[in-house]
Design a protein around this nucleic acid. Structure first.
Lengths: 121, 121
DNA sequence: CTGGATCCCCACGGATACTG
DNA sequence: CAGTATCCGTGGGGATCCAG
């Protein structure tokens, strides 16, 4: 049995949140879905560093949690679109807050002349 | 250093944020530190599901990133206190947003008699 | 184009014992 | 009390091939 890492029942509220968006690339995926529907290939390009396999797995879990919807178009070149559900959209405040902090963090780091410990971090 | 999972330089803003709080239990740890200083043993109890080793590792990384400070009291029964730095406190909006969503999620789930995957409204 | 199925490996993380 | 050191198992995730 997989005791999972996070337990939304016994854990604190943050832990509950992580049980949904705690996956490796979930937050990043959801962030890119804020702007609208995305095809699999788009997400693949938007999230470099992840493999197709990982992307698929993460998308499946998000779908299972009711955060995103998956629409398959029965076309000859297959097309699949992922979209936030109403429930998934409720995560927007979190994602936007993370984006804001990230932007600030990035510019802060870029402004630093020399990192204290060049290799790490 | 290994390319790690997240790269705040090449990735999107959310990815940059995850490079700091993306660790397994980092968000949970930081959340508990919002209320003030915590001793190692306290955190250990506050974050069930994590081992001392993991807790130590996560704390070390957070410290290396300048998010928390570690104070050692040279007492006979050793005492170590962890506290958010000013920089770490800048993460508060994220943590609080996650807490809020988690609370809502928990109560929502508790009210559900059966898991519903199709939620139109 | 969008994945599913498989194989494989290592590094992540658990458990335990020890120390200042 | 607050770790560190060590060993070790596992499963997470990469790579590859195949399919609709």
């Amino acid at each position: 049995m997989r005791p999972k890492r996070y337990d939304w029942r016994t854990g604190c509220s943050v832990e509950a949140t992580l049980s949904v968006i705690g996956g490796l690339w979930k937050a990043v995926i959801l962030f890119h879905l804020l702007e609208g529907k995305r095809r699999f290939g788009e997400l693949s390009r938007l999230v470099p560093g992840t493999t197709q396999r990982m992307l698929t797995l993460q998308l499946r879990e998000l779908e299972a949690d009711g955060v995103i919807s998956r629409t398959v178009f029965p076309e000859v070149p297959p097309r699949v679109e992922y979209e936030l559900t109403e429930f998934g959209r409720s995560l927007e405040p979190i994602l936007l807050t993370m984006r804001d902090w990230g932007l600030s963090f990035q510019s802060r780091r870029l402004g630093e002349p020399k990192p204290a410990k060049d290799l790490a971090a």
